[in-house]
Design a protein around this nucleic acid. Structure first.
Length: 529
RNA sequence: GGGUCUAUGGCGCAGCCAGGUAGCGCACCGGACUUUUAAUCCGGUUGUCAAGGGUCCGAAUCCCUUUAGACCCGCCA
């Protein structure tokens, strides 16, 4: 028991990869190339959870490669899915008329991509590029157009009765006992979901449908009464999610896919379809919890609490995202931008462990931490440690220096002896912390009641600060002014902190005022007299 | 109705998935430094790890039961 064999780099990712390998060996499948897949939603603005799916899949790929196998990550955009509702903040684009159409057939409201769906996918791909994840991009629309799923669709539709019953048994959904698990795109009005698949003509490999009114969410969507046939070898329709993954896994030979618990039921059905109908042993899985916001609500676009990779990267490094996603997979997690400072420090700590500056007694934990560090660096860790600056300290400094921030914060860091030389990396960090401080640490205006003596003292101080003579010791001047005007120095300091920092306490005020700039402080103070 | 996750000092959390001296931040207390307050630095206090049972030489960690909370599914993707 004490001699536990450590797999790979000792993280959950390695364990997962090794489970996958054992399963593949037991199945006796060829392991020359182990493909992992991640599905990218294309209907809404991709948040950090969507990114996580791909990042984690990439982790498994890296682990497999590390164990000596060849692997590939396929990022698959579901852009033949229909637009179900208009994302928050996109009301002004007149998307109503496109409801229920495949997102790849809707024009890009921003005009920069070939479709609405591609626009959304691109945001996610951009996020992946920014954190350094490599992938092979595939689109549903191309997949169907090229007829890559043709054989699987045929088999599924021929077994639709059996599948319908099984779906009902497994997850209690009755719908597919009545309808085919295939959604044609109406040739007349371009809508999915309104076109109801009634019959599969196996000889012609076509699905017969009638377009009629249907309910999506709580809204009615009008059908056009068109009656048509959809060729399953073209992009004239798509499989329902309950069976589509299975078709894709089989066609692409996918061996691993992670999934969020919200699609647990779909995965359960798809595994069965894959194993029993398509006779392709389903890929190995791992389930992850959704990210919740700080109030415990599911992150959703409509609530406006969406955290995108792009927004995150304004405040935190790419590595902070990777750390968030690789440190663990289990457990529901409430996530917010205020987790960034902690993750930034945690990365530094991991780096110190990796380079032996922090001792870890437990050997297994040491290996695990080092492994995590390597994964966060996508198994290509730097040869030497970077210079560490505490992110929270940077935020504090950024709060003080608003103008000419980069230079002045850098100078402070040099003065403090935190760093020896100004480095571009540090500049970037100052920028991130600066953005964070601008966005989240805005000071609330405190109502300060000043009596006449306080105002008089303040006036004297302003005068002194505006004076041309060098103030050798601002601290002393403040002290003298307070004493000479019957104010408790304690109270006077408190007033100054409230005005300058918005708190009742703060750093030693003399040098602090000198740091911010005498004239600047004088100006701020003068607004209160 | 089905399922998943969570429960650890006053507060917020890590550690659990691969068992080996219970940790961090804030708060609190003491010391150092400072012509006040503070910041900073050093040191310290705070825990029947939700409850009960089981496995084990050893359980916060693994297994079972219970309680409480959150979330997901039961439209669709």
């Amino acid at each position: 028991m004490t001699e536990q064999k450590i797999i790979g780099k000792g993280t959950w990712i390695d364990k997962l990869a090794s489970e996958l390998l054992e399963r593949e060996k037991a199945l006796g499948r060829n392991t020359d190339l182990l493909k992992v897949e991640s599905g990218l939603g294309a209907s809404g603005i991709p948040h950090i959870g969507s990114l996580g799916d791909a990042v984690r899949a990439c982790g498994v790929k890296l682990a497999l490669e590390n164990l000596g196998y060849k692997s590939e990550l396929i990022a698959y955009s579901d852009d033949l899915d229909g637009l179900r509702k208009i994302p928050e903040g996109m009301q002004e684009f007149g998307l109503e008329e496109h409801i229920a159409k495949p997102v790849s057939l809707i024009p890009d409201p921003y005009g920069c991509h070939d479709s609405y769906g591609m626009h959304m996918s691109s945001i996610l791909l951009d996020g992946l590029d920014k954190v350094g994840i490599k992938y092979e991009f595939r689109r549903a629309v191309d997949t169907y157009k090229q007829g890559l799923l043709k054989d699987q669709i045929h088999t599924i539709l021929q077994n639709s009765t059996k599948i319908g019953e099984k779906i009902s048994e497994l997850v209690g959904q009755e719908k597919y006992q009545k309808y085919l698990p295939y959604f044609p795109v109406c040739a007349n009005c371009n809508r999915l979901y309104t076109a109801e698949a009634s019959e599969y003509i196996a000889d012609e490999k076509k699905v017969k449908y009638t377009c009629h009114d249907t309910e999506i969410g709580s809204k009615m969507v009008k059908g056009c009464s068109h009656v048509g046939e959809a060729d399953i070898g073209k992009d004239l329709g798509k499989l329902a999610w309950k069976v589509e993954f299975a078709a894709r896994w089989t066609a692409f030979d996918i061996r691993f896919e992670a999934y969020g618990k919200d699609i647990m039921d779909s995965v359960k059905v798809n595994d069965w379809v894959s194993d029993e109908i398509l006779e392709f042993p389903h890929p190995h899985h791992v389930k992850y919890e959704m990210f919740l916001d700080k109030g415990g609500k599911k992150i959703s676009k409509s609530l406006g609490n969406v955290i995108t990779a792009q927004k995150w990267l304004e405040f935190g490094s790419p590595k902070s995202i990777l750390l968030l996603l690789y440190k663990r997979i289990t457990g529901a997690r409430e996530l917010g931008f205020d987790d960034i400072p902690g993750l930034m420090s945690e990365y530094n700590e991991l780096e110190d462990i990796y380079f032996g500056r922090i001792k870890v007694d437990n050997q297994a934990k040491l290996i695990k931490n080092k492994g995590l560090y390597e994964y966060v660096n996508l198994l290509n860790p730097p040869k030497q440690s970077s210079t560490h600056v505490n992110y929270r300290l940077l935020i504090e400094l950024a709060k003080i220096f608003k103008e000419n921030r980069g230079q002045r914060v850098m100078k402070k860091l040099l003065d403090y002896g935190v760093i020896k030389n100004p480095e571009p990396e540090i500049e970037k960090l100052i920028e991130l912390a600066g953005n964070y401080s601008n966005e989240f640490d805005e000071q609330e205006k405190i109502q300060i009641d000043l009596d006449d003596t306080a105002k008089k003292a303040l006036t004297l101080l302003i005068k002194a600060l505006n004076g041309d003579e060098e103030l050798e010791d601002i601290q002393n001047t403040i002290y003298q002014i307070a004493k000479g005007n019957d104010i408790q120095p304690k109270d006077f300091f408190k007033i100054l902190y409230q005005i300058i920092l918005g708190t009742s306490r703060g750093p030693k005020i003399g040098p602090f005022i000198s740091d911010i700039g005498r004239k600047q402080v004088a100006k701020t103070l003068s607004e209160y007299v």
